[in-house]
Each structure stands twice: as C-alpha cells, then as structure tokens.
Simulated assay, not measured.
Amino acid sequence: MHPSSTLPSKGLIRQPALCQWLDVTRSGLAKLKAKDSTFPKPIKDGDARQAAAYYVVAEVEAWLQAKIAARDKAQADSSEGATQ
C-alpha cells in the first residue's frame, strides 16, 4: 500500500485506481469486499451493471486506519499475554 500522500486530492477514486492503490486485482477487491462487510460501499454512476464505481477516499482511509488499529491492538494483546 502506498502512503496517503500519493492519494488523489479529490474525494472520490474510481475502482481501477483503488485497486492499484491497494495493490489488488479486480477479483481481489471483490473477494475483499465479500469477506469484509466493513469495507466501504461504492457509489455507482448509474443503474447499469457496468456503471463506473467510485469510492470515497476518506472512507477507504478510515477503513485502512481501523484495520491498522485492530492489528496493532491484537499484536499488543498477544505480547502482553506472552509476558504474563
């Protein structure tokens, strides 16, 4: 994953750019969304199935921060249990 400084300054990011930012394929993103119900929902540009999907950059960043915080908490909890 790239640092947030490389994110576009606009509020929305298209699905292909999101895949590139998260370093996943389209199918990898689909699996991530299916596995993790907390992943931000896209905003579709129309009703057609092929309509472009956009994601709110701030929501994706918040999701990433929550994942990082959960990881750090799990690591801290496991290291505390090992020292007791």
Rank of each mutant, 00 (worst) to 15 (best):
9 S>M: 15
17 A>Y: 07
80 E>F: 02
58 A>F: 13
17 A>N: 09
14 R>S: 08
56 V>Q: 09
51 A>F: 09
1 M>G: 00
1 M>Q: 13
50 Q>S: 15
22 L>P: 00
75 Q>T: 12
42 P>I: 08
57 V>M: 12
10 K>P: 00
53 A>V: 04
51 A>D: 08
34 A>Q: 09
57 V>I: 12
9 S>N: 11
18 L>V: 05
34 A>I: 04
46 G>E: 14
48 A>Q: 11
25 T>Q: 04
13 I>D: 10
46 G>K: 02
63 W>M: 05
43 I>R: 14
57 V>Y: 04
81 G>D: 14
13 I>P: 10
41 K>T: 09
60 V>Q: 00
38 T>L: 15
12 L>R: 13
20 Q>V: 07
66 A>C: 03
6 T>A: 05
5 S>A: 11
10 K>C: 08
13 I>L: 15
71 R>C: 04
61 E>D: 09
20 Q>M: 08
18 L>W: 11
18 L>F: 03
76 A>N: 07
55 Y>G: 01
70 A>C: 01
29 L>Y: 05
7 L>S: 08
65 Q>V: 14
30 A>R: 05
2 H>A: 11
83 T>K: 13
76 A>H: 02
33 K>Y: 09
52 A>P: 10
11 G>V: 10
35 K>Y: 02
56 V>M: 11
38 T>G: 05
72 D>M: 15
43 I>D: 12
50 Q>D: 07
25 T>E: 10
40 P>Y: 02
8 P>R: 07
11 G>F: 06
48 A>H: 03
43 I>V: 12
67 K>C: 07
39 F>R: 08
56 V>P: 13
49 R>S: 13
79 S>T: 06
81 G>H: 08
67 K>I: 10
58 A>V: 10
21 W>D: 06
34 A>L: 10
6 T>P: 09
14 R>Q: 14
18 L>P: 00
57 V>H: 13
13 I>H: 06
2 H>N: 08
39 F>W: 00
84 Q>H: 03
74 A>P: 01
61 E>F: 02
72 D>F: 14
1 M>L: 05
50 Q>E: 11
44 K>Q: 12
41 K>H: 00
73 K>Q: 00
42 P>D: 00
53 A>P: 00
43 I>L: 15
84 Q>L: 08
1 M>K: 15
74 A>R: 14
26 R>Y: 04
32 L>K: 11
76 A>Q: 10
36 D>I: 14
8 P>I: 12
2 H>R: 04
36 D>P: 06
13 I>K: 03
1 M>T: 04
10 K>D: 12
68 I>R: 09
34 A>S: 13
80 E>P: 01
5 S>C: 07
12 L>C: 03
12 L>K: 09
11 G>R: 01
79 S>L: 14
13 I>W: 06
60 V>W: 04
34 A>D: 01
58 A>L: 11
15 Q>C: 12
30 A>S: 13
4 S>K: 08
14 R>H: 03
26 R>E: 02
54 Y>C: 14
64 L>F: 03
45 D>C: 04
45 D>M: 10
